[in-house]
């Protein structure tokens, strides 16, 4: 495998006030051109992990240990200036709510020009570049969009503008935090098709954060499953979805209704709720909800280990399924 574009090692994120661990010892890397999906429920630490990559952790939360190596620098210890030059330029991000990324009182064209300027880009042909960016993301009338304000656009169109904004400086890595969750399914499909097309064209790496297994199944190369602040399973998208080894991943997949199930059999459910990451201690966080759990699971922490199908952190792998 080629040298990774970005490498996250032993990342731990905690609250500043009471030192509660929210992301615990997370390590993974993204290769150039690779698309990685991070799947997890609310509180699993997936969004905080993504925000760490850009030094954008919210107030009251900070990375307590680990490193994020990008271009020979550690982004966790990098100064503001370094981070600023990387943000937008080399690593860009799109969010669930485009309004958090767009200034409501500024015309869209001006906002994109500002992005180019802020990174010392060539501004002589900036307007042209913005119009091209708009048409690339499928905005029907780029000239009109250039002169429009965010509120004049629908949610799907705003999402396209945000994608244009993220892509205009041709980043190496695009981080997407559930950008389609708030959209209607037919619009979601349009956005996914757009992202897929642009990624291929630019050979861009991607980190896609979502709670929706269906979305990443056809979007990414590799899937990371997070639970209670830790990675519980990593593998190629094919293996994770067809041969999940961690009982949590397997349970999650089994709990979804299947379009092929003519008899509509009762859904398999996972009892209980995910624990708060800081309450887990030296045990498998999933053990209270796991049918395979035994004394070992409750008293020691399984580490991520490679097996035939995936890497999973579990003492009792699901085994062969196919």
């Amino acid at each position: 495998m080629s040298k990774p574009l970005i490498e996250i090692s032993n990342l731990t994120v905690s609250t500043t006030d009471d030192n509660r661990t929210l992301v615990n010892d997370v390590s993974f890397s993204i290769a150039p051109g690779e698309a990685v999906g991070v799947v997890g429920e609310s509180g699993s630490g997936k969004t905080l992990t993504a925000l760490s990559l850009l030094g954008l952790l919210p107030r009251g939360v900070h990375a307590t240990s680990g490193s994020i190596t990008y271009g020979g620098k550690d982004l966790l210890t990098a100064d503001r200036e370094t981070l600023r030059s990387i943000r937008g330029n080399e690593i860009a991000m799109i969010y669930q709510d485009p309004m958090t990324a767009l200034n409501p009182v500024m015309k869209l064209g001006a906002q994109l020009i500002e992005v180019i300027q802020s990174h010392g880009g060539d501004t002589s042909n900036a307007m042209e570049r913005v119009l091209t960016a708009f048409s690339e993301v499928g905005i029907p009338d780029p000239k009109r969009a250039y002169e429009s304000y965010p509120h004049e656009f629908s949610g799907g169109m705003r999402q396209r503008v945000m994608i244009a904004m993220a892509l205009i400086l041709s980043p190496q890595l695009l981080i997407a935090d559930e950008p389609t969750t708030a959209l209607d399914v037919t619009i979601q499909q349009q956005i996914l098709a757009l992202v897929m097309q642009e990624r291929r064209k630019r050979n861009m790496s991607m980190l896609w954060i979502t709670h929706d297994l269906g979305v990443v199944a056809n979007l990414v190369d590799r899937v990371i499953v997070m639970y209670a602040g830790r990675i519980v399973e990593v593998g190629s998208v094919k293996e994770v979805f067809t041969n999940p080894q961690h009982p949590y991943t397997a349970g999650l997949l089994a709990s979804l209704p299947k379009a092929s199930d003519k008899n509509r059999t009762r859904l398999l459910s996972i009892p209980g709720i995910p624990p708060k990451p800081w309450t887990v201690g030296e045990s498998c966080a999933f053990s209270p909800r796991c049918s395979k759990a035994d004394q070992q699971c409750r008293s020691s922490l399984p580490v991520l280990a490679t097996n035939t199908h995936t890497d999973a952190a579990c003492f009792h792998l699901m085994g062969d399924n196919s």
Binding site: V185, T186, Q189, A217, N218, L219, V237, K238, F241, K258
Partner: peptide, 26 residues
Amino acid sequence: KALIAAMPDHTEVGNNAYEAPLKGEV
């Protein structure tokens, strides 16, 4: 038909082909 086609389906993995079934917006 479009709604059914647009449902993200976790049982079909890795064909990496997203085709938007419908153009335009509501």
